[in-house]
Amino acid sequence: MKYVFYVLGIFILTLGISFTIQSGLGTSPFDALLVGLSINAGLTVGSWEVIIALILICCHSFLKRRRPEVLGLLTAFITGIGIDMWLFLLHFFVTPELWYSKAVCFGIGLVVIGLGTATYLHTNFAPIQLTD
């Protein structure tokens, strides 16, 4: 059951990320990097999510002289798919043009990001290991 909540949490998180991107008012620093790469270098935001995560995980693995964190790659892959899926769907249904509709879209995104993050982290399925 925790695997279902893990994936559900990531999809909720990516819905929130997609709302903030769609609002045009800004995103988190990492998502801004992904959007910038998507605009300037091609590929989708989700594709860049997977590519950058792969690079970072491999660099971490090399520096720590360990095997790469497979669960981190799984999280990045699911996140990339989720972002692309939601951006594709929201493009047809959510196109805020006025400042207040952009602000509402951004606010919804922030709340949904919080709910998604809490849901997937609560499963403790793919914990981020910061220390040895």
Results as ranks from 00 to 15, higher is better:
I12L: 12
L13Q: 06
L15H: 02
I17W: 03
I17F: 04
S18L: 05
F19G: 08
Q22H: 01
S23Y: 02
L25H: 10
L25F: 14
T27D: 13
P29E: 01
P29L: 02
P29M: 01
F30H: 10
D31S: 02
A32P: 01
I39P: 03
N40T: 08
N40A: 13
G42L: 07
L43P: 00
T44K: 02
V45I: 12
G46K: 00
V50Y: 07
I51S: 06
L54C: 14
L56Y: 02
L56C: 05
C58R: 04
C59S: 10
C59K: 02
H60L: 12
S61K: 01
S61I: 03
F62C: 11
F62H: 07
L63C: 12
K64N: 07
K64Y: 03
R65H: 07
R66F: 01
R66Q: 09
R66V: 05
P68T: 07
V70P: 05
V70E: 11
L73T: 00
L73W: 12
T75N: 12
F77R: 02
I78V: 15
I78H: 04
G80N: 09
I81L: 12
G82L: 13
D84V: 06
F88Y: 15
L90V: 09
L90W: 03
H91I: 11
H91Q: 14
F93Y: 11
F93V: 09
F93D: 08
V94Q: 02
T95Q: 11
L98E: 01
W99D: 09
W99L: 13
Y100L: 08
Y100W: 15
S101V: 04
A103Y: 08
V104I: 13
V104Y: 14
C105Q: 10
F106A: 14
F106L: 15
I108Y: 13
I108P: 15
I108V: 15
I108H: 12
T117R: 03
A118Q: 05
A118P: 00
T119I: 04
F125R: 09
Q129W: 07
Q129R: 10
